[in-house]
Amino acid sequence: MPTRRALIALATLAAVPAAAQPAFPQRPVRLVVPFPPGGTTDVLARALAAKWQDAWGQQVVVDNRGGGGGVIGTQEVARAAPDGHTLVLGNNQTHATNGALIPGLPYDPAAFAAITLVARAPHALVVPAASPARTVAELVELGRRPGRGLSYASSSAGSSSHLMSETFARRNGMNATHVPYRGAAPAAQDLVAGVVDFMMATWASVSALAADGRIRALAVGGDARFPDAPGVPTLKELGFDYVSADAWFGLFAPFGTPMPLLERVHAATEAALADPVVRGRLEAAGFRIETMPPAAFGPFHQAEVGRWAALVREAGVTLTN
């Protein structure tokens, strides 16, 4: 956790007038994605990086540092200089659940400078197109059959898809085995191939596969049905609201990054996401765009640390790093 001295130093930096702050950015910016290319976090990062680069006139490099359920890339940013030139696009796994899941985690999820929420991604319960389950009830019945047993994929061990799938299986008395992957993209590929039986995936990572019939969506998360899948019921309306939590994605900087720099990145992010082309493309991909300034995102993040820790306890999941 940040020391009292570090907290005082941060407050002092934040109090320096914006006019006294150096120009930003002064060199290329590195945006770390702690997951492999092609996943939901990567899609968001590349959309932001392109717009930032245009606005700042500096190169913005998206650096995929997958591994360890997001630990490797997130740890790198925690150790980086707090000058705004190294940022991480994290999510509820890297900056909330990992703290409850992994004993001896090499970084404190709460000890980052929170910049802004970027988007939420509701989940969907999906099965291969060839699955005999055409409803959630039928999937539950398959998982309860003696000797049958199902397998479910997740984007990584400890991810929201893992926690919600495990909670879903436990609450419904299903015999289901977890198969973790290194990212949503390879997990979805094996789902299409029928290697695994079901997956609780972000709609952003599987909507295209559902649209062309390669997988079947049994239910979606959130309070309302998705506009591009109006015939798919919500988990909430089916009585499974306890696994209807959204994944969220947010920008963080190393602890001690001055507030004026955080506010500049937040402003650039809001401008990028206000672009109708960018926003439309991301919303069509299943994201729900939502931003908030550092002063609001910080408390939101702290509350999420506690909320996801409770979900970890219910799922009964523990990991080793």
Rank of each mutant, 00 (worst) to 15 (best):
L139R: 01
G70M: 09
Y107H: 00
F287M: 10
I215D: 04
A285M: 14
G38K: 11
I115D: 00
A130V: 14
L311C: 05
G183Y: 13
H301D: 00
V179A: 11
V29W: 02
A184N: 11
L87S: 07
A78E: 02
N98D: 09
P186D: 04
A110W: 10
P260W: 09
P227A: 15
Y242K: 02
P233N: 05
P106L: 13
A267N: 04
D275V: 04
L44K: 00
P276Q: 03
S156L: 07
T12M: 10
N92L: 11
G84Y: 00
T257N: 12
G38M: 07
P293E: 09
W52S: 08
A184K: 01
A303K: 15
G256E: 03
N91A: 04
A129I: 09
P293A: 11
V278H: 09
R288F: 07
A119R: 00
G213A: 08
A9R: 11
T3E: 06
D228N: 14
I8M: 15
L44W: 04
P128A: 04
A208K: 15
V62R: 03
R281Y: 06
A15E: 01
S159D: 05
Q75D: 14
R288P: 09
E138V: 00
W52L: 11
P254C: 08
G173L: 02
V317S: 02
D108C: 06
N64V: 05
V206Y: 06
V71A: 08
R171F: 05
